[in-house]
Simulated assay, not measured.
Amino acid sequence: MMRDDHLVLLSAVGGVTRKLREGRGLTRRELAEKSGVSERFLADLETGQGNISLARLHDVARALGTSAGELLVAAQPERQEKRVVALVGLRGAGKSTIGKALAEKLEVPFVELDALVEKDRRLAREVLIRFLAGADEAVIATGGGVVTDREAWRLLQKRCTTVWLQATPEDHWKRVLEQGDVRPGAASPHAQEELRALLKAREPLYAQSALAVDTSRLGIPGAVEEISRRVTSR
């Protein structure tokens, strides 16, 4: 017998699929022909009765001009009480240091998303979806580029209290050096300028976070206190 939460998800995916199909002016028959699945199967999917495989969901999503990940993200309910805190920001923002201290203060688990996908970063979105599906409380340190993955970023915004850890370019660079960054290009004479340009390019995305905390002004302990105060008062 299927679990209740699985039934809820299937119903939500079906509803999103139906809205997209109707929004594109397609009949079920037309979508069935474009996706290669049967019209009966689509009817079951849209009414939440079809236990669709990821392969078939991919075919349907592609025919609708989207992706299976987008359908799953759109089907996720937005939590009214967001008890998972997701820290975002460029490397050197202090996500790991602040995340560990914040998790200890809030008495919740601390998770580094990059550590979960160390072997294959292409799996980051899938790992994030699975983690958030079962997480009630946690502090997550995300990768610096998570905001550039539209599906992953939308999911974080729906399911978590997102916190942008701001810092001056100088502090970002200082912390990167203190961390002993050995990635290719870190020793380049232009690396600091490249980091500054990357920060400027991503700032509009980071600014979409629910909260922003200036770690350069507050320092690490002050930032932990500020985030704790603001997330517990929401």
Results as ranks from 00 to 15, higher is better:
Ala43Val: 05
Gly23Cys: 09
Asp4His: 14
Ala141Tyr: 01
Lys95Asn: 09
Pro77Ser: 08
Ala212Tyr: 02
Asp171Pro: 01
Glu151Met: 11
Arg150Asp: 13
Ala32Val: 02
Leu128Tyr: 09
Arg196Thr: 14
Gly219Lys: 01
Arg62Phe: 11
Phe131Ile: 06
Lys82Met: 09
Pro221Gly: 11
Glu46Thr: 05
Ala93Ser: 15
Leu155Ile: 06
Val60Thr: 07
Ser188Asn: 11
Ile227Tyr: 02
Leu199Pro: 00
Arg121Gly: 05
Val139Glu: 02
Gly99Ser: 03
Pro221Tyr: 05
Ala207Met: 03
Ala74Val: 00
Lys105Trp: 04
Gly92Thr: 03
Arg183Pro: 11
Ala167Leu: 01
Arg125Pro: 09
Val182Glu: 15
Asp44Phe: 14
Thr17Gln: 11
Lys95Trp: 03
Arg40Trp: 10
Glu194Tyr: 10
Arg29His: 13
Val88Asn: 00
Leu102Ser: 09
Ala63Lys: 03
Gln80Val: 14
Gly36Ile: 02
Trp153Asp: 08
Arg21Leu: 05
Ser11Phe: 10
Ala201Gln: 15
Leu20Thr: 02
Val60Ser: 10
Arg21Tyr: 06
Gly145Met: 05
Asn51Thr: 08
Arg40Tyr: 11
Gly99Phe: 01
Leu54Met: 09
Ser209Asn: 07
Ala68Glu: 08
Ala133Asn: 13
Thr162His: 06
Gln157Val: 01
Thr161Ser: 13
Pro204Thr: 10
Gly99Leu: 02
Glu78Arg: 08
Ala86Ser: 12
Val16His: 00
Met2Gly: 07
Leu64Ala: 03
Gln49Arg: 15
Val117Pro: 12
Gln49Met: 12
Leu132Lys: 06
Ala86Gly: 11
Arg183His: 10
Val73Tyr: 08
Leu195His: 06
Leu128Glu: 08
Gln208Gly: 06
Gly48Ser: 13
Leu155Val: 02
Arg202Leu: 13
Val60Gln: 09
Glu81His: 14
Glu137Arg: 15
Thr168Gln: 06
Glu33Thr: 11
Glu22His: 13
Gly36Met: 04
Arg154Asn: 13
Gly25Trp: 06
Thr66Lys: 02
Gly48Glu: 09
Gln166Asp: 15
Trp153Met: 05
Ala186Arg: 01
Pro77Gln: 00
Asp120Phe: 01
Ser209Gly: 12
Lys200Val: 12
Glu151Gly: 00
Ala133Ser: 14
Glu39Ile: 10
Arg229Phe: 10
Thr142Met: 08
Arg91Tyr: 07
Tyr206Phe: 15
Val8Lys: 15
Ser233Thr: 09
Ala75Trp: 05
Glu33Pro: 00
Glu112Val: 00
Arg3Cys: 09
Gly23Val: 08
Ala61Leu: 06
Glu46Asn: 08
Asp171Met: 11
Leu90Arg: 01
Met1Gly: 15
Gln192Asn: 09
Arg230Thr: 02
Val117Ala: 15
Arg154Pro: 04
Ala135Val: 13
Ala152Gln: 07
Arg121Pro: 11
Asp44Arg: 10
